[in-house]
Design a protein around this nucleic acid. Structure first.
Length: 693
DNA sequence: CTGCTTTATAAGACTTTGAGTAAC
DNA sequence: CGTTACTCTTTGTCTTATAAAGCA
C-alpha cells in the first residue's frame, strides 16, 4: 500500500483529509481514482465554507462505507501462497525432516554408548533388573511377559521420580514461526554434556526419554528410541497471518526455554511427547511403548482406538506424521503406523511423497542412508510387519466424506476425477457402503484398485502404448473424445530395423517418447550439451552415409494462437541401426574433437591478431621516437596526451571490429609506419605456427 | 461442535509436427 | 540460391487442491 501523501484523520465512518493548498503535492496514480468515487461532495462544500484558512485549506471527506465493505470482503477471501512459496515450504519440510531424523540417529547412538551404559549399569536395583531376564524354564511365557511389563512399570516409577525435567525440548513450529530465528537458549548439546545430563538425571523431556533408553540398554533390554519428528505442513497453502504474526512472535513458545518453569504449564508446554521408547518384550513378542516423561505409561498401542500419542489435527504444537524408531544397532524404522489411528485416511496425506513418487523415493532413501542396513529380517521385524498389516486392515473406511478423497484404499464415486472410472462396476469392486453424516443417502464404497485413469488413444501413444484390438471406450468426453484405461492398451512395438532401413512416418521422422519405442535393432543417439543435431546428422549422412531418422521425443507448447501456432515437435536425437552405433560414436568423437580444435584455433587467431595490433602500436611508438626523439614523462610535453589519444582511438576501432583488427584501414591511415617496416613486420600475421612456439 | 456446501484463488493438466523474414 | 536462425504470441480451457465462512 503506498503511503498517502495527504493527512488523514479518522472520524467515524468517514475520513477527513486536510490538505494544505499551498504545499499540495498530490500524485494521483490510477489506483487512486477508485477512491475519488467515494468523495462526498456535500462535505467538501461544507468544509470549504467554514474553512479555517480560507481558500488555502481544503477539507474533504472520503466516504469509506463501500471501501470498508470491499476490504472486509478482501480479508475474508483467502489468497493462497504463490508457487515459489509452495516450493520453499516443501523444501523446508524436507530439510527439517532430514535433519531431525539425523538428530534422532545421533542421540540414539549416544544412548548406546558403551561408556554411558557401563556407568548406568549400577543405577538399577537387582530386583527390577531380574524381571527383564527370566530364565527359569518352569514359568509360562505369559507370566514372564507380565513380569517383564511389571519390571518396566517399576523402572518407570523410579526413573520419573529421579529425572528432573528442565525444558520442554523439541517443539513443532508452523509457517508463522519458522522464519523466527530467536536464539535458542538450549546450549548446543555435546556428547559430554549429554553424558553429564544422564548421569545426574536432569535435562529436557527429550533427554529424559533418551536417558531411559540408555538405562534399559545398560541392562541388555532391546529398547528403541522413538522420535515423533515435528515438521511444518508442506501441503498448507495458507499465507502467514499478518496480524497474528507479531502477536505470535510475542507469545513464541521458544521464549519459555529461556526461563524454565518448575511445573508444566498446560497452555505453553506441549502435551505430547516427541521422544519416547519402545521395548521388545521377548516373552509376548510385542513392542511395548514406554513414555516415562509426559504420559508416564507402559502399554501396547491399541488397535482400533485413538492413540494418545497422536495429537488432534487442530493442535498446532504437535502433529504425528513421522514416527521414527532407532534400535540398538542403529537400524531405522518408520513406525508411524503404530501411533496413528487413521494413517491411511489422514496421516499419509501430510507426509512427503504422498503426491509424488520422486519424493516418496527421496524419503525411503533418507531412511536407508541415515540408518544402518539391516541384514535378514529378524523375528521381531517379521512380527512388526504383520502388526502393521493388521493395523492397515483394521483402520477400515473413513468416517467422513473428505477423508475418502485420495484415500489409498477406498474411493467414492462422486469424488472421482473427470478422467477416472470404476471398472468393473459391479459387486467385485464394491467393498461397503457409506452414509454421509449430513445426508440420508447411502453410497457404495469402492476399492481404489478398481479406479482406472483414462486417456485418449493419442495420450496413450505418448506413453508408448496402443489400444488393443477391439477395445471399446469406457467413457466419452465432449462427444468426440474417447477415453480408454491402461488395461485396454498394450505396449507399442515399433517396426524393427531391417538391413539398416529405418521406417519413418509422414513427417520423415520417428516418435520415441519412451525407451520402449526404440525399435528392435535400433539405437537412439541423443542430443547432448556438446553433440548437436547438426553433428549427428553430419556423422550419419555425410561421414557414414547410413540411413537415419530424426527422433521426436516430446512436444513443446508455445501457447496456441488461434490455429496459427500449433505445438512444435522437439527433436531429441537420431535413430540409427544398432550395428552402426560404435562407428557413429567414433565419428561423433572425431567431430567433437574437430569442433573443439576449430574453436581453439579461432581463439588463437584472435589472440594473434591482437598481438599483431599491439606490435604495430609499438612500432609506431618506436618510429615516433626515432624521428622525433624520445619523449620523457618527466618533461610533461604536450605530445604525451596527444599520443595517448591516438592510441585510444585505435583501441576503440579494435572494439568496433569485435577484436579483429581491420588491416586495410590500419594501412590507409597508417601514416606513422614506413612502407618497408610495415611489410616486414606484418608478415607474422599469416605465419601462425611459428608464433605459437 | 462437526462436517458438509459454497465460494474464493492459484496452478496444473491438457493440447500433440509453423510461417515469414533476415542473414549467411 | 539454398540453408539457417530467429521471432513471432502472451494466454486457450477445464479441473483440482486448499481454505474459510456459512449452514444444518
Amino acid at each position: 500500500e503506498p503511503s498517502p501523501t495527504y493527512e488523514v484523520t479518522e472520524k467515524g465512518k468517514a475520513q477527513t483529509a486536510k490538505i494544505d493548498g499551498t504545499s499540495l503535492d498530490l500524485e494521483v496514480d490510477s489506483d487512486d481514482f477508485d477512491d475519488l468515487e467515494d468523495v462526498d461532495m456535500d462535505l467538501l462544500d461544507e468544509a470549504n465554507q467554514n474553512g479555517d484558512r480560507g481558500n488555502e485549506t481544503l477539507t474533504f471527506s472520503i466516504n469509506n462505507g463501500d471501501k470498508e465493505r470491499s476490504e472486509a470482503r478482501k480479508k475474508r477471501t483467502f489468497v493462497p501462497i504463490l508457487k515459489q512459496e509452495r516450493i520453499m515450504r516443501k523444501l523446508i519440510h524436507k530439510l527439517v525432516l532430514f535433519s531431525m531424523i539425523c538428530h534422532g540417529a545421533i542421540r540414539n547412538r549416544w544412548c548406546g554408548d558403551r561408556r554411558l551404559l557401563d556407568m548406568l549399569k549400577k543405577t538399577v536395583s537387582a530386583e527390577i533388573a531380574s524381571l527383564f531376564h527370566q530364565d527359569n524354564a518352569d514359568v509360562l511365557s505369559v507370566v514372564k511377559a507380565k513380569r517383564f511389563v511389571d519390571g518396566l512399570r517399576k523402572l518407570l516409577t523410579v526413573f520419573s521420580r529421579k529425572f528432573k525435567v528442565t525444558s520442554p525440548g523439541i517443539q513443532r513450529r508452523d509457517w508463522s514461526s519458522t522464519g523466527n530465528t530467536t536464539e535458542e537458549k538450549d546450549r548446543i548439546m555435546s556428547f559430554e554434556r549429554f553424558m553429564k545430563c544422564v548421569k545426574t538425571f536432569h535435562g529436557s523431556r527429550d533427554v529424559g526419554a533418551q536417558a531411559f533408553v540408555a538405562v534399559l540398554r545398560s541392562m541388555g533390554v532391546n529398547a528403541r528410541l522413538v522420535f515423533s519428528v515435528q515438521v511444518p505442513d508442506y501441503r498448507s497453502i495458507r499465507p502467514v497471518k499478518d496480524g497474528s504474526n507479531q502477536k505470535g512472535e510475542k507469545e513464541n513458545p521458544i521464549r519459555e526455554t529461556n526461563k524454565p518453569k518448575s511445573e508444566f504449564d498446560p497452555v505453553e508446554n506441549p502435551n505430547y511427547p516427541v521422544f519416547w521408547i519402545e521395548v521388545w518384550n521377548k516373552y509376548s513378542r510385542k513392542w511395548i511403548t514406554v513414555d516415562p516423561i509426559v504420559f508416564k505409561v507402559v502399554e501396547v498401542m491399541p488397535m482400533r482406538r485413538k492413540c494418545k500419542f497422536d495429537a488432534p489435527a487442530a493442535e498446532e504444537s504437535h502433529q504425528t506424521w513421522y514416527v521414527i524408531a532407532y534400535d540398538e544397532r542403529n537400524v531405522i524404522k518408520d513406525v508411524t503406523r503404530r501411533y496413528t489411528q487413521f494413517y491411511n485416511a489422514k496421516t499419509v496425506k501430510k507426509r512427503i511423497g504422498f503426491a509424488s513418487d520422486e519424493d516418496a523415493h527421496w524419503y525411503s532413501r533418507v531412511l536407508r542412508s541415515i540408518g544402518k542396513q539391516k541384514g535378514s529380517i529378524s523375528q521381531a521385524e517379521a512380527m512388526e510387519l504383520k502388526e502393521f498389516h493388521d493395523r492397515h486392515v483394521c483402520e477400515g473406511t473413513p468416517n467422513n466424506m473428505a477423508d475418502f478423497k485420495n484415500h489409498p484404499v477406498y474411493a467414492l464415486e462422486p469424488q472421482l476425477r473427470q478422467d477416472e472410472i470404476i471398472y468393473p462396476n459391479d459387486e467385485t469392486s464394491k467393498c461397503g457402503t457409506f452414509r454421509s453424516s449430513n445426508k440420508s443417502s447411502i453410497m457404495p464404497v469402492y476399492k481404489r484398485s478398481c479406479v482406472h485413469k483414462l486417456k485418449t488413444p493419442k495420450a496413450w501413444h505418448m506413453s508408448g502404448r496402443v489400444l488393443k484390438v477391439g477395445a471399446q471406450p469406457l467413457k466419452t468426453k465432449k462427444a468426440h473424445i474417447l477415453l480408454y484405461a491402461e488395461f485396454q492398451t498394450e505396449l507399442y512395438i515399433p517396426p524393427p530395423i531391417i538391413d539398416g532401413k529405418i521406417t519413418k512416418n509422414a513427417y520423415g521422422n520417428v516418435e520415441i517418447f519412451r525407451p520402449t519405442m526404440v525399435p528392435e535393432n535400433g539405437v537412439l543417439l541423443k542430443i547432448t550439451r556438446d553433440v548437436s543435431m547438426k553433428m549427428l546428422e553430419n556423422a550419419a549422412r555425410w561421414v557414414l552415409n547410413i540411413d537415419y531418422a530424426k527422433a521426436i521425443v516430446s512436444f513443446e507448447f508455445g501457447k496456441a494462437l488461434k490455429n496459427k501456432r500449433a505445438p512444435t515437435a522437439k527433436e531429441g536425437g537420431i535413430l540409427i541401426d544398432a550395428q552402426y552405433k560404435e562407428a557413429m560414436l567414433a565419428v561423433l568423437d572425431g567431430l567433437r574433437e574437430q569442433e573443439e580444435q576449430e574453436k581453439r584455433e579461432a581463439v588463437e587467431l584472435n589472440a594473434l591478431r591482437s598481438w599483431n595490433f599491439f606490435m604495430k602500436k609499438l612500432q609506431i611508438v618506436s618510429r615516433l621516437d626515432r624521428s622525433h626523439g624520445k619523449v620523457t614523462h618527466s618533461g610533461e610535453d604536450a605530445d604525451i596526451p596527444l599520443e595517448k589519444e591516438e592510441i585510444h582511438k585505435e583501441d576503440e576501432e579494435e572494439e568496433d571490429e569485435e577484436g579483429y583488427f581491420k588491416k586495410s584501414e590500419a594501412s590507409e591511415e597508417g601514416g606513422f609506419l614506413l612502407e618497408d617496416t610495415k611489410n616486414e613486420d606484418l608478415a607474422i600475421n599469416v605465419s601462425t605456427e611459428g608464433m605459437m612456439d
